Computed example of a mutant assay.
Amino acid sequence: MPDSPQIDVVRRFYDAKGDLAVIRSLVAPDAQWDVVEGFPNGGVYDGLDSIVDDFFGFLSLFSSFRAVADEFHEAGDRVITLGRYVGVTHGGRDVTSRFAHFFTLRDGLIVRLQQTNDTLPIARALED
């Protein structure tokens, strides 16, 4: 069974693997990112430019980092994903951390992401 249009947008977000040009094409200009405290650059970001310029800067802490969605669940204008972050720090430490993402979509674009995850594995991997 093919994905719904909402799940397709979210799946393309994950498939972008941090490619900011692709992310800009999938996220609304007035989007809001609500990232759990304790995650690198955790906090609330209003607007696509702030999301890209201020939040995604955390990627510089890793030699590789990606979000892998294992499950997709749709409810109206929301898509909920369960998955894991997988990365390697510049110091060579591997990290895996589970997450839940709650996306809200409007007119085929992501307008809100509420993220929660187990921040402890990431914090430990980034320790000096």
Rank of each mutant, 00 (worst) to 15 (best):
P2Y: 00
P5Q: 10
P5K: 08
I7D: 05
I7T: 14
V9F: 07
V10A: 12
F13M: 14
D15H: 06
G18F: 12
D19E: 09
D19W: 03
L20T: 13
L20M: 13
I23L: 15
R24Y: 06
S25E: 15
A28C: 12
P29I: 04
D30R: 07
Q32V: 15
D34S: 00
D34P: 00
G38C: 05
G43E: 02
V44G: 04
D46W: 11
L48H: 03
V52Y: 02
D53A: 14
F56D: 11
S64H: 11
D70C: 01
D70K: 04
E71H: 14
F72E: 11
G76C: 09
G76S: 06
D77S: 15
R78I: 06
T81M: 08
T81S: 11
L82G: 02
R84A: 15
R84I: 10
Y85H: 10
G87H: 13
V88L: 14
H90P: 06
T96K: 14
F99A: 02
F103M: 07
T104G: 02
R106Y: 04
R106A: 09
G108H: 09
G108K: 06
G108S: 04
I110S: 05
I110M: 06
V111H: 05
Q115P: 00
D118W: 03
P121Q: 04
A123V: 13
L126K: 13
D128T: 09
